[in-house]
């Protein structure tokens, strides 16, 4: 490929990606007639529901991350250590959420866990929150599992386990004190990705009727003109922040390894 064509493709691509960002940034400043101002942001930040939904989603993200770590780290570890023959099955399951649309999964939740079912989770706010956390965990599962499994590949799981066992450590100690710290970078990068996914998620939260950030943004978008692009800028900043932190932990760990 000639260098000129390469540059042309690349710059056209950049234009496509930069214009919408520019557009939302510019639009979000247009609230005051005739001049640019931060009014839209002021209005958004003054809205108590912004903070409520933001906080709610943040809380759910934390719960999802904890759930994801508790579920994925022991499983990926166990598959590497004892059950390599279960790998195809486990990998298949972790990839299912990429194939089955989230809206179908949440539809199943609503019908399966309704008030008259064996596990009436949708009957209470707490139950629905738990259900939503589980839903988010499935959404994050492909990324979390892949990240942790890759992390485990770089350490010698069998030797570490045998060394810990010879020193008298039990399974919980091995997982919490040996394995987890060794795959911390992978866990963290999975966690930041989870955070980015949960903060912007709309479908599951909307259909389960929970006051999350995604439905709040959608509601505002249907009724206002200048606040939505301001929200988009904020959401973009959050995503950017999550990805930046992901890069940071990865890079930091590389330096650590290089030093060692």
């Amino acid at each position: 490929m000639s260098r000129l064509v390469a540059w042309a493709i690349f710059l056209l691509g950049c234009l496509y990606f930069l214009l919408p960002l520019l557009g939302m940034g510019e639009f979000s400043l247009r609230m005051r007639r005739g001049e640019y101002s931060l009014d839209a942001y002021r209005v958004v930040f003054a809205d108590p529901r912004f903070w409520e939904t933001f906080g709610y989603s943040l809380g759910l993200a934390a719960a999802t991350i904890v759930m994801g770590v508790v579920l994925v780290v022991p499983t990926a570890y166990w598959v590497r250590l004892k059950l390599p023959q279960a790998r195809p099955f486990v990998e298949f399951v972790t990839l299912l959420p990429l194939v089955i649309p989230a809206i179908v999964v949440v539809f199943g939740y609503i019908r399966l866990y309704n008030t008259s079912s064996f596990l009436p989770l949708t009957g209470s706010a707490l139950g629905t929150d738990i259900l939503l956390t589980m839903g988010y965990t499935t959404l994050a599962l492909p990324y979390m599992y892949r990240s942790v499994d890759t992390g485990l590949r770089t350490i010698d799981v069998t030797t570490l386990t045998e060394a810990a066992q010879s020193l008298g450590a039990g399974w919980f100690t091995i997982l919490a004190r040996i394995i987890l710290p060794n795959v911390m970078v992978a866990v963290l990068s999975g966690a930041f990705l989870t955070l980015a996914i949960v903060m912007g998620e709309f479908t599951m939260a909307a259909l389960l009727n929970r006051p999350a950030f995604g439905p709040y943004m959608q509601l505002l978008g249907a009724n206002r003109a200048y606040e939505p692009p301001a929200l988009a800028v904020i959401a973009f900043a959050i995503t950017w922040g999550c990805m930046g932190l992901m890069q940071l932990v990865t890079r930091f760990s590389k330096h650590e390894r290089a030093k060692a």
Binding site: F27, I197, A232, M243
Partner: peptide
């Protein structure tokens, strides 16, 4: 690659806002 990581996750509601602000009836472009 970093930007791709961000953009591939910048989907959903805010993405729609960004495009409305750009190519919508009174968008930038």
């Amino acid at each position: 690659l970093t930007f791709s990581g961000v953009a591939s996750n910048f989907a959903g509601v805010p993405l729609a806002f960004a495009f409305i602000a750009t190519l919508g009836p009174v968008g930038l472009i």
